[in-house]
Write a protein that binds this DNA or RNA. Sequence first.
DNA 1: TGAATAACCTACCAGTTAAGTTGGTTTTTG
DNA 2: CAAAAACCAACTTAACTGGTAGGTTATTCA
Lengths: 150, 150
Amino acid sequence: MRLSTKGRYAVTAMFDLALHEQDGPVPLTEISTCQTISLSYLEQLFAKLRKHELVVGVRGVGGGYRLARPATEISIADILRAVDEKVDVSRAAQKGDPAQALWIEFSEQLYSYLDHRTLADCISSPYALRISARQDGEHARGIPTRQNAA
Amino acid sequence: MRLSTKGRYAVTAMFDLALHEQDGPVPLTEISTCQTISLSYLEQLFAKLRKHELVVGVRGVGGGYRLARPATEISIADILRAVDEKVDVSRAAQKGDPAQALWIEFSEQLYSYLDHRTLADCISSPYALRISARQDGEHARGIPTRQNAA
DNA sequence: TGAATAACCTACCAGTTAAGTTGGTTTTTG
DNA sequence: CAAAAACCAACTTAACTGGTAGGTTATTCA
């Protein structure tokens, strides 16, 4: 289990995609300027997200990234696992040291918490709704809102 | 918010102290051999834990570290914050980007979860009790069990 | 009193990871 | 064809992790 700025970048970017599920694909250039992350670094993160089938890329003009599944079926843990790529899940467990066993138990509980937090319920919090409502009031973003790009 | 192996080391070490609250101070050499972490690295972690008043050191022969407060009053978040030393707590919030606002909300919820998980309830889980019972059956550790060392 | 124990302290270091840069190519749209 | 954008790979730099080395101080006990 690990949670770093890298994970934060990935999660916030996914929030962005989830918030614009209706508006067609979101280009990385947008996320890059909006959240001041370098484009290339975002590309690296999205390569991993795509490999883990959390997003799909749409090439060409008007392209970008969309969620590969509905936001209700993508958990925060999914995203963190995708960009962390840690193969061995908390392998500490050496010869039953009590303290380490306790860690494993604790981290499993933490994971199960993160496994149940989906993108959908994160963006549908009261606070989130207030924000995205305000956002819809202005004309969303700089991009021509194309309905149903796929 | 971050959670790395460093945090894991600190938390498992604190589990160790909590499990031996009755037996007087626990020397770092013990934790070092038990959990195969270098002594010096443990010393660095405990310097931070001490600075944050989560543990107290007892010098000299038969010394070691004790919890500075009862285990019921030390949360996992306390420990992670002590060793992480991140000054600015999730300062992402730039000009109200919706995705970043959502991250802040999410991480606050995660923290509040970790703020309510105390050492005491971690070590008193059914699984933990089974383990430490087994541990008491043998004569605890290699150390002469002195009652009330302070 | 002196040896052993253990906290406490400082400086340093190697390896990994994060984060970003550069410089492309391919695909798609207009 | 030109522009937009995904896609790709190699490289760089800075930070952090985890660990070493070599001390000093305080305390206990024989």
